[in-house]
Amino acid sequence: MHRFANPARFLRLSAVIQPWAAGATVVLLVVGLYLSLFGSPPDYQQGDTVRIMYVHVPAAWMALFVYVNMAIAAAVGLVWKHPLADLFSKAAAPVGAGFTAVCLVTGSLWGAPMWGTWWVWDARLTSMLILFFLYLGYMALVNAFDDPERGVKAGNVLLLVGVVNIPIIKFSVDWWNTLHQPASVIRMGGPTIAGEMLVPLLVMAFAFTAYFVSVVLLRLKSEILARKIQTLRLNDAQGR
């Protein structure tokens, strides 16, 4: 693992991977969009609104996937003091927060015609909202220090505390939700998935993953450059 700790080596590797990831994103997005907008039938109950699912559900998967990855990177950063792992969480957080926001808003846009309301305090929606706050809290903490190193380290501790808490929050929200059933009769959960709907869903999920990889590689490069600039400026200040 420490073979990739050297920023120069990482940059060379990332320069090789990045174009492939970007290309895969474009191809998968084109195919995925075609399948989800033209190539799949409307649901027999939900009609064409089911097409919202093809962005909503992959965004939800990405929101969780990115957070788990950040938490793993935080653990690696804390235990082995791996410098790239530290930078990874910082680089990935805005992307994860973006996917969470997409998931929340598209869910709301899906709920409006189907449930007749923009928001219900359903267990899944509520947990997603809390996850969004965890992302925002992490980003605020990382950027709140004059010394970026310290911000990243504090963020790592917060990520680990958050990842311990996510199952607890999920469980408590599920429990709370079954106790306070909403009065209106609302059919929860998506439609039972037919094969012709599963394919566009998976293609879109892979497209989002490829997008995440290519953007995070760019952001990591940007973070590495920021560190370099900082070192140069420090040296300049000391040299004078």
């Binding site: 809390i130 706050f133 965890l134 925002l136 809290g137 605020a140 903490l141 709140a144 220090f145 004059d146 310290r150 911000g151 504090a154 501790v157 917060l158 505390v161 958050g162 808490n165 607890i168 929050i169 469980f171 408590s172 929200v173």
Partner: peptide, 23 residues
Amino acid sequence: ALTLGARRGGVLLSLLILPLYIP
């Protein structure tokens, strides 16, 4: 402990802690 020495530590603290208070 996390917000020690941070800018606007007090507001930041509530932002970090309140979601964890939900359970």
